[in-house]
Simulated scan of single mutants.
Amino acid sequence: MTALLLVHGRGQQMPLGMGRSPEDVARHVAALTRLWLAGLAKGAVLAAEGPPTLEAVHLPFYGNDLAARVADLDAAGGPPPDLASGQDVDALIQHMLIDAAEGAGYRAEDRLPQTGADGRAAVAEIQEIRRTEQLVHPEVEWSDFLRLQVARSALQFLAVKTGLAAWVIEQFYRDVAYYLTDVGLRTLVQGVVHRSVASAVDDGHTDLVVIGHSLGSVVAYDACQSLPPGVVIRLLATTGSPLGLRVVRRHLSGPGAGTEHRPVPEAIQPWEPAAPGWVNAYDVRDVIALVHPLGPLFTGGEAIRDERTNNPSSPHAVEDYLADPEVAGPIVRALTGASRPS
C-alpha cells in the first residue's frame, strides 16, 4: 500500500485575514493539495500513464508555523550564532548566494573592481581554492569583509540572471538558512512531517512516494534519515531544490553531517531494480535550483535521475514541475507499481 507525501516549501501560509479554525486550515491544505495533484495529473496524461490512482495523500502543513517562527526570528535579529561552527545565519545566507551564483557562472574576481588590485587577487585566490576543493573548512575561507562584498555582488548577478528582485531572492534563501540553523524551527517542521508519516503508517501504508518542493526538498531529505522502522521510500522526487548548494548539503541531517559529500538516503528502495530511486527536476531559470544536476553531488548519485524542465507559468512553480511528463511518469509508476501485489 503506497501513500503519497507532499512536502511544501516556504510561503505557503494562509493569507492574513483568513480564519485559523481547523476547518479553515483543512480547506487551505485541500486547496494546496489539489494544486499539486492537478499538475501531477497533467504530467501523468502527457506521460501516457493516465491519471494516477491515489490510495492516500498527505500534505504535512507547517506553513503557518513556519511563517510565525520566521517572523519571530526576524524580530529577534535572526537565530543566535552557532557557536560550534562559528557561523551565524547571515554568513550562511551569504554563502548560499555565492554558491548559487557560482552555479550559474558567476566569477567574483571578474566582478569586484571596487576592491582594488589586492582585493581582486585575494578573491581570485580564494575562488581557485574553492573550485579545486582544497579547503578543510570551506565555510571560513572568506574574511567577513570580502564575503559580504562577494555576496552582494552575487545577489545582483542572480537578480539580473533570473529577472527576480533581489529582495525576493534573499527571502527564499533566508528561510532555508533559518530552517538549517534554528533548532526550534527544524524540530517544529520535522515534527509535522513525521506526524503525517505516522498517520500513513497507522492506515497501513508503509511504502511512500515523497515529493519535496523548494525548501520542502531539504525537509524531505532530513525526514528520510529518521523514518520509523519498516517504512520504505519507493521514490523521492525533488523539484526546485537548493540541495545542490554545498553549504546546504553540509547542514543536512544523517550520515556525513558537516560535509558536502552526502549519501542518497538508505530508506530509498525503488519499487523495481530498473526504476530511479530519486528524481530531481530543475528549471535552469529557477533561482533556487541553479546548482544542478544533483547526481554528481551525492554519494550513490547514480540512483538520481536529473530532469531539466521548462516551466511555462513560473520557473519555480511546483504545479509546472509536476506537469512535466518526465517528472510525473516515474512518480505515477512508483505509486502504482509499488502497490501491485508481488
Rank of each mutant, 00 (worst) to 15 (best):
T2S: 15
L5R: 06
G11P: 08
M14F: 00
L16R: 12
G17C: 07
A26Y: 02
H28W: 15
A31D: 14
R34S: 14
G39T: 00
A41I: 01
A48T: 08
E49G: 13
P52N: 06
V57L: 09
V57T: 13
Y62M: 09
G63V: 03
D65F: 01
D65E: 15
L73P: 08
D74G: 09
A75K: 08
D82T: 04
D90Q: 10
A91I: 02
I93K: 11
Q94S: 13
L97E: 03
D99R: 01
A100M: 07
D110K: 04
P113N: 09
G116V: 04
A117Q: 09
E128K: 13
E139P: 11
V140T: 15
E141P: 08
W142N: 13
D144R: 15
F145V: 15
V150T: 11
V150F: 04
A151F: 04
R152Y: 03
A154W: 02
Q156K: 12
F157S: 10
L158W: 02
V160P: 09
V160H: 14
K161D: 13
T162P: 12
G163V: 03
L164R: 11
I169D: 11
Q171N: 10
Q171P: 05
F172M: 11
Y173C: 09
G184K: 01
R186K: 14
L188A: 07
V192A: 11
V192H: 10
H194Y: 00
H194C: 05
S196A: 15
V197Y: 03
A198W: 03
A198C: 05
S199F: 06
D202M: 01
D207P: 00
V209H: 07
V210W: 04
I211V: 15
A220W: 00
D222H: 05
A223N: 06
L227K: 10
P229H: 08
G240A: 10
V248M: 07
R250F: 02
H251F: 02
H261R: 11
I268A: 11
A274T: 13
A274V: 01
W278G: 12
A281I: 02
D283N: 05
V287E: 12
I288G: 10
V291T: 08
H292G: 01
L294Y: 04
L294M: 06
T299L: 13
G300D: 09
E302L: 09
E307I: 14
R308M: 12
N310I: 06
P312W: 04
P312M: 01
S314T: 01
H316A: 10
V318Y: 05
D320P: 11
G329Y: 03
T336V: 12
P341A: 14
